[in-house]
Design a binder for these strands. Structure first.
Lengths: 162, 162
DNA sequence: TATTGTTATACTCTATAACTATA
DNA sequence: TATAGTTATAGAGTATAACAATA
C-alpha cells in the first residue's frame, strides 16, 4: 500500500501543476470579470481590505498588497475617479489621508458577494461533503505553509469560523 | 452527522475564499519570482506552451492564452528581444511565423522545472499521503468543472497520467 | 473574402528615484 | 531625522481599430 519516493515526487509535481493552473485561470477569469464592471484585481483587493479593516492609510494598503507606495497612489486614484472610494483627511496627521469606501464602493462589494453564489455552484455544487471538506483542509494547510514562509497573502476573506 | 444548508453554503464560501486567496498569492509570487529572471507570467505561459506543443503560430498562442493577437505580438517581441524564442518562417504560409524556442529558452524551462523541487517541499513536504491525494482529487474536480463552463485554462502542465 | 500579423493609440499595474509637507 | 504621499519616468500587459500581405 505504500508508494515509492518517485511516486511521491510525481504527486508533488502534479499538485504544483494543478495549483498553478488554478491560480492562473482564476486570476485571469477574475480579472476579465472585474473588467466588465470597470474594476481590476488590484482595485478590488483594496476594496476587500477596506471592507475588512475600515478606513486605512494608503501606506497600510501598500503594505497589505505588497506594492510600492507610488503604486498605491495610482490604484487609489483610479478608485477615486470611478467613485468607489474617497480620501478623507486624517484627524490628527495632516500628511495622511484615510481611504474610505463610498456608498457605491460598499454596494459594489455587497453585489459581488451576492454574485459569488452562482460561481460557487459551478465550483462545488453537488460535490460530496467529504470531498469538499477534504479539499478545504488541504487548501488551508497549503496556505498555512505559504504564510510560514513569508509569502504575501491577500485577505480575500478572513472569516475565522469557530 | 448531516450538515444544514447554511453550513454547506458556508463551506462553499470558505472554499471560494481559499481558492481566491491561493490564486492571488501564487500569481503574485510567481510574477515576482519570474521578474528576477527577466520574465513575466505571460511570457512564461508562452514558453510552457512551446514546450508542450512545439513551434506554433502566434495566433494559436493568442488563443491559448486568451489574449488579442496584438497582445501576443508584444509578448513574443519581448521574448525575441531577450533571446528566449525566435520567429521562424512558416514552410508553406508566408504570412505566418512559427514561434520557436531558442536553446536559452529550453534551458530556462529546464532550470525552472528543477527549481520547483524546493517549492513543492514548502507546499507539500511532510504532508500525509492521504491528505495530498485528497487535495489533488479536489483540485482536479474543480478544474474539470471550470473547463466544462468554458473558462480559459492555461496549460501549466498537461500530463494525463493513465 | 478570410486570415496572419502588424502599426497606432490608450489604459492599467508595477517599480525606482527625487521631492514636498508634516511629524 | 523619519514618515505619508506626491510628481516624474519607465517597462510590461491588455484592448480596440485600421491596415498590409497572403491565402
Amino acid at each position: 500500500m505504500s508508494v515509492t519516493h518517485n511516486e511521491v515526487a510525481s504527486q508533488y509535481e502534479r499538485g504544483l501543476g494543478l495549483l498553478l493552473q488554478l491560480a492562473l485561470v482564476l486570476h485571469h477569469d477574475l480579472a476579465q470579470s472585474l473588467a466588465r464592471d470597470g474594476l481590476t484585481v488590484s482595485r478590488v483587493r483594496v476594496l476587500w481590505e477596506l471592507r475588512a479593516r475600515g478606513p486605512v492609510l494608503q501606506r497600510e494598503l501598500a503594505d497589505a498588497l505588497d506594492v510600492a507606495p507610488r503604486t498605491m497612489t495610482g490604484i487609489v486614484d483610479g478608485l477615486v475617479a470611478t467613485d468607489f472610494v474617497t480620501r478623507q483627511p486624517h484627524p490628527t496627521d495632516r500628511r495622511a489621508a484615510l481611504v474610505t469606501l463610498t456608498p457605491r464602493g460598499e454596494a459594489t462589494i455587497a453585489a459581488m458577494e451576492a454574485d459569488q453564489a452562482r460561481f460557487v455552484e459551478i465550483l462545488f455544487g453537488g460535490m460530496s461533503e467529504e470531498r469538499l471538506a477534504c479539499l478545504i483542509d488541504g487548501l488551508e494547510e497549503v496556505l498555512a505553509r505559504l504564510r510560514q514562509h513569508g509569502l504575501q497573502l491577500p485577505s480575500a476573506s478572513e472569516e475565522e469560523s469557530a
